[in-house]
Design a protein around this nucleic acid. Structure first.
Length: 322
DNA sequence: TACTGTCAAGTTAGG
DNA sequence: CCTAACTTGACAGTA
């Protein structure tokens, strides 16, 4: 039997005034005359973000949701080069621990998806180094939450640079320069413009990195449309992970804007995926990437539970009955 | 209070 | 070579 578990991204459309991504822009920060006071403002914002994050986890618990992507913007300007040397962890240690403890007590799977500024296959050393800085920031947050950082941070292979083959190989070369602790934290996802499922499998198998399969990206960018033929290879990349297989689910906004995320998830496409993968592994955690966030999850569950072969195991998890 | 322009970072497509 | 689009919520200034 395969347990399918649903999660959502970073913020709730139901919980008001609970943004975990409040910020102070660098421009505003630089305008403030008292730099120490400005740093205190950053710290207060970070603390408020973490408090809001805790509210989100409580909301998730109330709805039986145990899978959640944390915002990468919890600490404003944490990795900005003008703020090197700023101890952004110290002032929020208690908040981080409280969040991590709550997640642990309630067996929640939390992870991160830093945005497109992480480019490990960069040609430019500075871009590579700033990518490492961003990953280290994620590592420290996890560490101080008391969460094992293994396989908690997903991103893409990087740029194509007009030569996909050599750019793919450069990811492998650069990987040797990535600190071991950060290597263990990483998962790789197929993207919608450059690196396909095949490309990612090649790298993930070589470097022993779990592959997060994004079905929507696959439909926008593939070598072989039939992903099923490679599904067992995807599962294999998770063999040595302490965590269940993870994937991303979203639907195209429209045929014209195919790559954009729709407000909600199309249940039919998802049901097809479920039918094809049910029974292939113990558990698959599905991250819902939709504009309507948790509401999209609720609506999807509402549709799924009407299906005769779907047996709900909680408000956000289910099995497929053969 | 509601609306609009602006905001750290990178890459790609297009002119 | 340069710029806009991508994606994108939140902030700050203005109406």
């Amino acid at each position: 039997m395969t347990l399918f578990r649903l999660g959502y991204v970073a913020m709730s459309v139901h919980l008001h005034n609970a943004s975990p991504s409040q910020t102070v822009t660098y421009k505003r920060f630089a305008q403030m005359k008292d730099q120490e006071a400005a740093k205190r403002k950053l710290e207060r914002t970070a603390s408020a973000n973490l408090q809001n994050c805790l509210r989100l986890l409580k909301h998730n618990k109330a709805h039986d949701i145990q899978f959640f992507r944390l915002s990468s913007r919890l600490v404003p300007l944490a990795t900005h080069e003008a703020l090197q040397g700023w101890d952004y962890i110290g002032p929020i240690k208690q908040d981080l621990k409280m969040l991590g403890d709550y997640a642990g007590e309630n067996r929640m799977r939390l992870d991160f998806h830093p945005d497109h500024f992480v480019v490990l296959n960069a040609r430019d050393q500075e871009i590579f180094q700033s990518s490492i800085t961003v990953l280290k920031y994620h590592y420290l947050l996890l560490h101080h939450m008391g969460i094992d950082p293994t396989h908690r941070c997903v991103f893409h292979l990087g740029g194509r640079y007009k030569d996909k083959e050599s750019s793919l190989e450069r990811f492998i070369e650069n990987w040797a320069l990535v600190p071991k602790g950060i290597q263990k934290m990483v998962m790789i996802e197929n993207d919608d413009t450059s690196y396909t499922l095949n490309d990612c499998l090649y790298v993930c198998e070589k470097l022993q990195i779990p592959l997060v399969f994004d079905l929507h990206h696959h439909m926008a960018n593939y070598d072989h449309k039939e992903w099923e033929e490679n599904w067992s290879r995807v599962l294999e990349t998770w063999t040595h992970s302490p965590l269940p297989v993870k994937m991303h689910i979203s639907s195209p906004k429209s045929p014209e804007a195919f790559k954009s995320h729709a407000d909600y998830v199309d249940p039919d496409m998802f049901l097809t995926f479920i039918e094809k993968t049910a029974g292939t592994t113990d558990q698959i955690d599905c991250m819902i990437e939709a504009k309507q966030k948790d509401e999209a999850l609720f609506q999807l569950v509402g549709e799924l539970r009407k299906h005769p072969r779907i047996k709900m195991r909680s408000e956000s998890s289910f099995e497929w009955m053969r």
